[in-house]
Structures are given as C-alpha cells and as structure tokens.
Amino acid sequence: MRTQHTSFESMVRLGDLVLAKAGQEQVSDPKEFDNRTGYDASFLKGWELPLPMPPATTIRQIRYGKDTGKDVLNYEHFSVVMSAERRLPIITAVNIDGKQAVRNVPRETAWYYDGRLDKSDQWGDALYDNNKLDRGHMVRRDDPVWGTKAVALLANKDTFHFTNSCPQMAAVNQQTWLGLEDYILHNAEAAGMQVSVFTGPVFTDKDLVYRDALVPLAFWKVVAIVTGDGRKSATAYMISQEKELKTLEFEYGAYQTYQVSVQQVGRETGIDFGELEPYDGFTDYERKYGKKMVVKLGDLREIRV
C-alpha cells in the first residue's frame, strides 16, 4: 500500500522545469564486466563472510548474456543487489584494502546506466536534474580504488553507475554521511587494514514520492573488520531524519548519525545479516536485555567496536 507516502512534488514548485541531462546518459557495455569478480566473501582473514541478501522476491535479476537470472551485479572490488520495485540498490558490498589504496584518481565526469539491466530498471538523471538531490554513492568512490593503477581506475569508474546511486540531499551526502565514510577509510589506510562495508537505503511506506520515484528517508551502513588480535567485529550505523520533512530543503540540522545494532538494520531492511550479528556488541546487548540499543554519535571517536 502507498497510502502513507508523503508527496515530494507538493513541496516544491517545479514550474516549467526542463530536465537538462535526462535522456543523454551513457550506457556501459555489458561486456566490460565479464571479468569483474565483485565483492569477495573471503576477503577478511579468517572470516568467510557471504554477501548478506535481501528476500529473493525484492531483487531485480540481471538480464544480460550468461549472467541472465543472476541476482548480483559485480564490479571492481564491490557488488550491488538492485531492488525490482524501487530501481535503486537494496544493498552494496565493498572490500577495502588500506595497504593498497590508490589516491589522486580523478573523478568521472558522468554517470552511466549499467547495460546489464534495462534503463527502466535504474533511475537515471531524470531523478536528479535541476533539484537539490545528489547522486549519492552507496559504495563510496574511494573505497574500492586500490590495487594497481589500472585496477583502481576501473573501480573508480564502476562506482559511477546509477546502480550504485541513491537520491540524497547534499547535507547527508556531502557532510554527515561523508564524515562517517571518511572515518572508516582513514582508519583502514592508517592501520593498513582490510575492511568489508555494506551500505544501502531503508525502504519504508513513508518514503517520499518524487518524479515517480520513492526517495528513502534513511540509510544504513554495516562495517566488518578483523582486529589486529584476530577478533571479528561488526558495527552498524544509520542516518535518518528525526522529524518529518517540512520543505524541499529538508531540516539539515535534523540529520544525525547513530550507531545501532546489526540486528536492527536486518529487521528494518529484511536483509539477512546472520553471519555478522554474533560479532556485534549492540546485537548481543539487545538479545541479553530485550531492549533496543542506539547511540547518537556526536563525535565519531565515540564509535564502539
């Protein structure tokens, strides 16, 4: 049912808006991805961690060549599972190697449709042109950019596919969420660590209707590491609005980042995080005491691993 959806269109005067770039997007040749292996479940030393999957009924399957009928889009060092209904990613999974990070790789100047899916399966520039919505990377551009320079360049370009994008307001994409992503990547590089990160939107019946799309009100991130002493650790984070939206500009100050339990992210998304939950202290607390554990992060140094 969609009766609870809030109309985004009613909050903004679109007038005679012309979508400047819609219809001019480039499409990646499906053959480009033939050798992409995507997210590596064996990436973390001593921890086999399969890609957490959402319910099969929610997934958009690939429609190209030998990959027809598969559920996962593989890119360089990361993978994406798309929503059949929303035309947005349900979950992305990336491996980060802090020891092999390559920096100063230039940004792409355009976003691409993934040719393994129909255009109608992906939201292109029609959703983002001439408004305050960013094409928010779910797999951050810098995260999979490691290895040789050639591999890093492929990974960089791969992140600029609409399949890796969700609509985010600038304050979320460029400030609050970016701070958490910077923190994760900086620590991975500083310690020469390997990290696996899972990211996606929270789809609910209260999401905003805008240009025929449903704009998520919240996003989540789950981080898995093996510490220097061999301990497995999983932590989860969520960013959302504390109050209902009043205008198109959003209540920027209402956005906050919270550390939550992996179990909570699984409940709200339907994604199976069963392999991660035993290594999350927040989940352990909730099961032991029967109440939700949420910590507002005023400072990222407050993160509990």
Rank of each mutant, 00 (worst) to 15 (best):
M1C: 12
R2H: 10
S10R: 11
M11V: 10
V12I: 11
A20I: 12
G23F: 08
Q26N: 09
S28G: 09
F33M: 03
N35G: 06
Y39K: 03
D40L: 09
A41C: 07
A41G: 03
F43D: 05
L44S: 06
L44V: 10
W47D: 01
L49S: 05
P52S: 01
P54G: 14
A56T: 12
T58Y: 07
I59A: 06
I62H: 04
R63C: 12
R63K: 13
K66D: 09
K66P: 07
T68H: 13
G69E: 05
V72I: 13
V72R: 01
L73A: 15
N74K: 12
Y75L: 07
Y75M: 00
E76T: 15
M82Q: 04
S83W: 10
S83Q: 08
A84V: 10
R87M: 07
I90H: 02
A93G: 13
V94F: 07
A101H: 14
N104E: 11
N104I: 06
V105N: 03
A110E: 15
D114W: 04
G115N: 00
R116L: 10
L117F: 15
D118N: 14
D121S: 14
W123K: 06
G124H: 01
D125A: 13
L127W: 09
D129E: 11
D129R: 06
D129L: 03
K132N: 14
D134Q: 11
M138W: 00
M138F: 03
D142K: 07
G147R: 05
G147W: 01
T148Q: 09
K149M: 11
A150V: 07
L154F: 10
L154K: 14
N164C: 02
Q168R: 00
Q168A: 00
V172C: 12
N173Q: 10
W177L: 08
L180G: 02
L180M: 07
E181P: 03
Y183H: 15
L185R: 15
N187P: 06
N187Q: 15
A188Y: 13
E189P: 00
A190D: 08
V197H: 04
F198W: 01
G200D: 02
P201L: 09
P201I: 08
V202E: 08
D205S: 13
K206A: 15
D207L: 09
L208K: 02
V209R: 08
V209C: 03
Y210A: 05
R211C: 03
L217P: 03
A218I: 07
W220P: 08
V222F: 04
V223G: 00
R231K: 15
K232R: 15
A234P: 01
T235Q: 15
T235S: 15
Y237F: 15
I239T: 15
K243W: 09
E244N: 13
L245E: 13
E249C: 09
T257N: 06
S261L: 08
V265R: 02
G266F: 04
R267P: 05
I271E: 07
F273N: 02
G274D: 11
E275D: 15
E275T: 09
L276H: 08
P278W: 01
Y279V: 02
F282E: 04
E286C: 01
E286W: 02
Y289I: 10
G290M: 11
K291H: 13
M293F: 04
V295E: 09
L297H: 00
G298S: 14
E302W: 00
I303G: 05
R304N: 14
